[in-house]
C-alpha cells in the first residue's frame, strides 16, 4: 500500500528539498516506485536539485486545474527509472492550490506509486499545510540549532491538528531527520547534541545527516546526493534513513568521510 510522506520543517534552508530528493532517490534505488512532489509554488527548486529543470512542461497547478493530466506532468528521472517528479508551478500563485484538488492528486498518486514524498515549502502558511494535509507520515528536517528546533516543535503541533489523519482522530507517524550535524562540534558542546534534540522534540529519530561538502557538490550538478556519490557520508546516512522508513532496524551511526583527529582522540562513538 502506498505511503504518503511529507518532508517538512517550518524553518527554511534546513534541507527539506535536499532530503526529499535524497530519500526519494534512495527509496527508488532500492526498487520501490517513488513520486516526489514539489509543493513550493512560486519558489520551486526540487526540479533543480533533481536535475530536471529543463524538462518541466506541466506542473502541480496545471493538474489541479485540469489543464494537464497527471501523467503529462510527471517527469521520469533519467538515472533511476522508477523515480518520478511532479514539479510545482513557478509562476502561479499558491492560492491556486485547493484542498480538494490536492486531495484528488494525492489519491491518484497513491494508486500509481509505493511512495509519495511531498516537499513542503518553509513556513506555516497554506503551502505548508497543504503539503502535510494528506500525509500518513512526516519527516521533520531539523538542524542542531535553536530556531530550527523551535520551528520543528511548531510543525509537530500542526501535524497533530491540521492533517486529515489528525482530524479523523488518527496520528501522522512522525520522524525527525537531523541534518547538517557536526559530531565534532557537538562533542565539544558547541552544538546541540542528538539526545538534546530528541528529548526536546520527543519524536523518534530517522537519521543523522552529517554536515558535508558532498551535499552542495550534488546539488551543483542536479543530482540527489544518494545518486551523485552513493559512498559519500551524507549518501550513506540517507540510505540508512530510507531503509528505516521501510521499517528496517538499523543501528544509528553518523557516517564520516574520514576519521577526524578529534574523533580519534575522543574515541567517540556517534550518537
Amino acid at each position: 500500500m502506498a505511503k504518503v510522506l511529507v518532508v517538512t520543517s517550518g524553518k527554511g534552508g534546513v534541507g527539506k528539498t535536499t532530503s526529499t530528493a535524497a530519500l526519494g532517490a534512495a527509496l527508488a534505488q532500492r526498487g520501490e516506485s517513488v513520486a516526489v512532489v514539489d509543493f513550493d509554488v512560486g519558489l520551486r527548486n526540487l526540479d533543480l536539485v533533481m536535475g530536471a529543470e529543463r524538462r518541466v512542461v506541466f506542473d502541480l497547478i496545471n493538474v489541479v486545474q485540469g489543464v494537464a493530466k497527471l501523467q503529462q506532468a510527471l517527469i521520469r528521472d533519467k538515472r533511476v527509472e522508477n523515480l518520478w517528479l511532479l514539479p510545482a508551478s513557478q509562476t502561479r500563485d499558491k492560492d491556486a492550490l485547493t484542498d480538494e484538488g490536492v486531495g484528488k492528486i494525492i489519491a491518484d498518486l497513491r494508486t500509481r506509486f509505493d511512495w509519495v514524498l511531498c516537499d513542503s515549502p518553509a513556513g506555516i502558511e497554506r503551502g505548508a499545510t497543504l503539503a502535510m494535509r494528506f500525509a500518513d507520515e512526516a519527516v521533520i528536517v531539523t538542524n542542531p540549532e535553536v530556531s530550527s528546533v523551535r520551528d520543528s516543535d511548531r510543525i509537530i503541533g500542526m501535524l497533530d491538528s491540521k492533517t486529515v489523519k489528525a482530524e479523523k482522530g488518527e496520528r501522522v507517524i512522525k520522524h525527525v531527520l537531523i541534518t547538517r550535524y557536526d559530531p565534532v562540534r557537538a562533542a565539544k558542546g558547541e552544538m546541540l547534541g542528538i539526545d538534546d534534540i530528541l528529548e526536546i522534540l520527543a519524536i523518534p529519530l530517522l537519521g543523522i545527516i552529517p554536515e558535508s561538502q558532498d551535499v552542495l557538490r550534488a546539488s551543483n550538478v542536479g543530482s540527489p546526493v544518494t545518486l551523485n556519490d552513493a559512498t559519500s557520508a551524507p549518501a550513506r546516512a540517507y540510505f540508512d534513513a530510507a531503509r528505516r522508513l521501510g521499517g528496517e532496524q538499523i543501528a544509528m551511526v553518523v557516517p564520516t568521510e574520514r576519521k577526524g583527529f578529534m574523533n580519534r582522540l575522543l574515541g567517540r562513538k556517534a550518537a
Binding site: V146, R150, K188, G189, E190, L192, G193, I200
Partner: peptide, 18 residues
Amino acid sequence: LRLFGGRSATAPVARERL
C-alpha cells in the same frame, strides 16, 4: 573539553533556553 577547545560549551545554554 572546555580547556581543550579554549571556548565554553554553549549547547547546554541552547538546550535550556529551548
